[in-house]
Design a protein around this nucleic acid. Structure first.
Length: 922
RNA sequence: ACGACUGUAGCUCAGUUGGUUAGAGCACUACCUUGACAUGGUAGGGGUCGGUGGUUCGAAUCCACUCAGUCGUACCA
């Protein structure tokens, strides 16, 4: 084996072996089913840190349950990402000077499929690099035939139940992408604008009202001015009309208590076709819905000719100028307002009156709320339930139609009279309605929101609406692993659809994890230039390549220089190759309950070192066991040392802890428990304790016992760690497991370690604790007294009780080796002891003679420090125990522990003080 | 405005139902190239747990208020 762990040489080899041998597939036996559906990444996407993190968690869960013997299915796939994918291919066409309209719908869709065949697999290849073990043979895509059938089935049956309807409503219109988007796809952020105060003259010439607006161009569509019914200033005007400037239309002054009399002038202009609040008011007062915009957000022919064809912002300028010229612009004040923008196009979204398809969600929401309330679905951590309930209780009908070409085309047909017929296909519509073959039918041009098909993901991927065996076995799925940012988009909708169409919840638990951010807590984004590519962390990347990658193809090239500078500063030497296992371990250790996960490269480095530690421990074990008798043959004499019993006992402890934390989705705590056991107990102590037995003339039985323990504990460690770090554990296990008498093909399918209470040995733990204390005591003196580590020391012991005597006899070999001692001598007569530095192990004194080694002043100041510490503690405990309230009210066991502590500190203090006196008298 | 979450060592974070001297990793200091590992070893320094008040024998932990930050939702034209 190499001296350093080199992940690169083993990862591809093992991944290919696993995949080719079919280890990722379900066993299809009658063991407990365990299934996870991958949140389908966007087919246009590439793996980012969020995916890498999430997939590490899912893979860890799947590998853990697979090893526990469950019949596991991890279902992979991607979604078709309607708008995003269409934009990618349109951009490619644009480079050739073409638009999708030049190709026509059919040709364009063909192009998209071609693109998908060529480039759609990026993310699934990257997932493989992460070591993910989904059943690739079951990979699905939301546009697959089967999934498309499911989409049609759901659409038709919801329509037949009147849960899908078509209607003319105000929607969020993206004037760049020319499509409606759902309210979730609109991001409103504060931007600087103005508040324009405009004077509207009364038709009868008796005066004017002043209205304020942030969007003066909408005045072209005004249908009323509203005041509060109780507002005394305006009561006499209600029912009169004003004449709309520039337009000349007479519009009424109406009363509505939506108007806040305190705000502004207390008069509001009402534009029902261009504002959501005004739309509601327009419906209440039966106002005309006059649309004054085109699909591009230009002024249409409903407005005065002068403004027709102008872009909305051009029109704004002109209208403001015209009103100023008329003296009707009373005031213009700077104003901060929330501007709605499309999350894909970043264009300002326009409330726009169009025909769209909607899902009536209220009836679907109720059972979905109940499923969480009654515990059929459980959020982990639980507090995300609040977010879910808040959204579900205020849920709005879902606009599902999109005016784009890529996606599931709505299964609805219009006849020449504009009447709509819904069916699974044209044939069905004709048959159901008795239309002759030559009766003219035209399919709706719109496609469905991508999330509509994603909402069916848990069951459509298993073959629904067919009654497949997979559906029966793996649905409901065991857990959904997802980020909190898509609880509304996806999780809630899956619950609604799952309950409606399968009659059962889509998953029993929802593990909601945080979002990966950079070291400063900033969201990673291309435009900020702080993106890390998980593959670069695995393989490493040179500084120049990283700079190139971060500044290439930017939307805002002006930021490139700044990004280059900060990248050069932060990664002066590029990024080293950490390997997949280290990155996975880092993700696991960051998976605590918080919302933000700051990815710290130094932590990845620490866990790379951990992998190297494990590698070298394996190397040591192999060097000492390969070609030797490791006790596989049960007939040979075998003898287990204290260290053997101790490490096996501690192993049971970590096995219990890790299982508990995996089951609670606390991957951070599981990772910590493993890290601490492997490094601080197995490597730091057990391997060191094994050395004196293997390197001296101990009996064959003792050596056999040590070798067997070395191997069996390591083999168990590897299995325990495998779900988090699959590659290094497989590589090491291949070499180690035969020495433990195992001859199987892969660690992946080995049983997950379980604690055996009968192997817990508290006596051995206590005795080894004594050994550790002894060793640490000597090391402390050595270090603080500046004695060379290479110098073997003689020690003298005094004040031994029966335990000390027995344990000393058992463990002399360990003490000599680990504390690097020349000799150990028990003093019968302490009075005649030479001047020494002292360490206390309980009440036993470990004396290191000072002659020639230790300086008097140094020892005095060392003792002084120790005494000071003890005095502080004694004072604190004394105070606590003399508090009547504490003694009377605290549980007896707590009081007893405190008393014991006080007593032992007092003894120690007495001993150290005596020592202090003695040294000082020299 | 409402709601949620966060605030613990220089940095990134743990801290279970209130009960050891509040922990880990990284960083830092000193010593050590010893034979698994310098991607290492040994020892060490560093925190009045955002603040104030309360409940309690006892509070990082429970309660109230407060400050700071993050995110969501709703927003008045």
């Amino acid at each position: 084996m190499e001296k350093h762990f080199d992940p690169n040489t083993i990862e591809t080899k093992w991944y290919q072996t696993w995949e080719n041998k079919g280890y990722f597939k379900p066993k299809n036996d009658d063991s407990t089913p365990y299934s996870i559906m991958i949140p389908p990444p966007n087919v246009t996407g590439s793996l980012h840190m969020g995916h890498a993190f999430q997939d590490t968690i899912m893979d860890t869960l799947i590998r853990y349950h697979r090893m526990k013997g469950d019949d596991t299915l991890w279902q992979p796939g991607t979604d078709h990402a309607g708008i995003a994918t269409q934009m990618v291919v349109e951009r490619q066409l644009a480079a050739k000077g073409l638009s999708r309209h030049d190709l026509g719908r059919e040709k364009f869709i063909e192009k998209i499929w071609e693109w998908k065949e060529d480039s759609g697999g990026t993310i699934t290849q990257q997932l493989r690099r992460m070591g993910a073990s989904p059943d690739w043979t079951r990979e699905r895509f939301t546009m697959d035939d089967g999934l498309s059938d499911a989409v049609k089935e759901v659409f038709v049956s919801l329509y037949e139940e009147d849960l899908i309807y078509r209607g003319k409503r105000l929607v969020n219109w993206d004037p760049v992408l020319h499509t409606a988007v759902s309210d979730l796809e609109v991001i409103s952020e504060e931007e600087q604008g103005n508040m324009w105060h405009m004077s509207y003259p009364l038709t009868d010439g008796s005066g004017a009202l002043v209205v304020a607006t942030t969007r003066p161009e909408t005045m072209l569509g005004d249908q009323a001015v509203a005041v509060h019914p109780d507002d005394e200033r305006y009561q006499h005007l209600i029912g009169k009309t004003i004449t709309l400037p520039l337009v000349g239309r007479q519009i009424p002054i109406i009363a509505d208590d939506y108007v806040d009399p305190e705000f502004g002038t207390g008069c509001v202009k009402i534009t029902p076709a261009h504002d959501f609040n005004d739309y509601e008011m327009g419906k209440r007062h039966d106002l005309p819905m006059l649309n004054i915009l085109t699909h591009d957000a230009c002024i249409n022919e409903e407005a005065p000719e002068k403004y027709q064809g102008l872009d909305r912002y051009e029109a704004r300028k002109l209208i403001v100028a015209d009103l100023e010229a008329l003296g009707l612009m009373v005031d213009i004040k700077p104003h901060t307002l929330m501007v709605p923008r499309g999350d894909r196009s970043h264009a300002v979204i326009e409330p726009f009156l169009t025909d769209q398809w909607y899902v009536a969600v209220e009836a679907l929401a109720k059972p979905a709320i109940d499923a969480v309330k009654n515990g059929d679905i459980e959020f982990v951590p639980k507090n995300w339930e609040n977010t879910y309930f808040e959204w579900m209780n205020n849920i709005q009908d879902w606009c599902i139609s999109r005016q784009i070409w890529w996606g599931h085309r709505i299964p609805a047909w219009f006849d020449d009279n504009g009447k709509v017929y819904v069916g699974r296909n044209e044939q069905e519509v004709r048959e159901k309605n008795g239309f002759a073959a030559d009766y003219n039918l035209r399919q709706d041009d719109d496609v469905l929101d991508t999330w509509f098909s994603s909402a069916l993901w848990t069951f459509s991927t298993l073959g629904w609406p067919e009654k497949t065996p997979e559906l029966a076995k793996f649905h409901p799925t065991s857990v959904l692993v997802t980020g909190f940012d898509i609880i509304f988009f996806w999780v809630a909708r899956m619950i609604m659809m799952g309950l409606k169409f399968t009659g059962e919840v889509p998953f029993k638990q929802i593990y909601v994890h945080g979002l990966v951010r950079d070291g400063e807590g900033q969201k990673m984004s291309k435009s900020k230039g702080n993106v890390l590519d998980p593959i670069d962390l695995i393989d490493g990347i040179e500084l120049e390549d990283l700079v190139k990658k971060r500044t290439y193809g930017m939307m805002q090239p002006e930021k490139a220089a700044k990004i280059e500078k900060s990248t050069r500063k932060q990664f002066a030497d590029g990024i080293p190759a950490f390997g997949t296992d280290a990155i996975r371990f880092t993700f696991a250790s960051l998976a605590s309950t918080g919302r933000d996960i700051r990815f710290d490269l130094q932590r990845a480095e620490g866990y790379r070192n951990f992998c190297n530690k494990l590698w070298n421990a394996t190397r040591y074990v192999l060097m000492n066991t390969e070609g030797f008798d490791t006790g596989v043959d049960k007939k040979a004499d075998i003898e287990f040392s204290l260290a053997d019993k101790w490490i096996v006992s501690r192993l049971q402890n970590v096995e219990t802890e890790v299982a508990k934390q995996f089951d609670a989705y606390r991957f951070d705590l599981a990772a910590t428990a493993l890290y601490e056991f492997i490094w601080n107990e197995y490597c730091d102590w057990y391997l060191e304790l094994a050395k004196p037995i293997l390197n001296t003339d101990s009996s064959d039985a003792a050596k056999r016992g040590t070798r067997k323990t070395l191997v069996s504990v390591l083999e168990t460690i590897l299995r325990m760690l495998h779900p988090i770090t699959p590659f290094i554990t497989e590589e090491a296990w291949q070499a180690v497991s035969p020495l433990a008498g195992k001859h199987n093909d892969t660690i992946m399918l080995e049983p997950y370690p379980e604690a055996d209470a009968s192997k817990i040995d508290l006596d051995a733990e206590a005795e080894l604790e004594w050994v550790k204390k002894f060793v640490i005591g000597v090391r402390k003196i050595r270090s603080e007294m500046d004695i060379a580590p290479s110098k073997a020391l003689p020690v003298l012991l005094a004040g031994l009780n029966d335990n000390d005597q027995a344990w000393l006899k058992n463990n002399e070999l360990y003490l000599l080796s680990l504390a690097k001692l020349a000799s150990i001598e028990v003093l019968l007569d302490e009075v005649n002891a030479p001047e020494s530095a002292v360490a206390l192990v309980g009440e036993m004194k470990v004396l290191i003679p000072m002659a020639g080694l230790i300086d008097k002043e140094a020892e005095i100041s060392r003792l002084d420090k120790e005494i000071g510490k003890l005095q502080g503690e004694i004072k604190r405990l004394g105070g606590k125990l003399s508090n009547q309230g504490f003694v009377a009210k605290a549980p007896e066991s707590v009081v007893a522990i405190e008393r014991e502590k006080l007593a032992s500190y007092e003894t120690a203090l007495k001993n150290l003080e005596a020592q202090y006196e003695k040294i000082q008298q020299l």
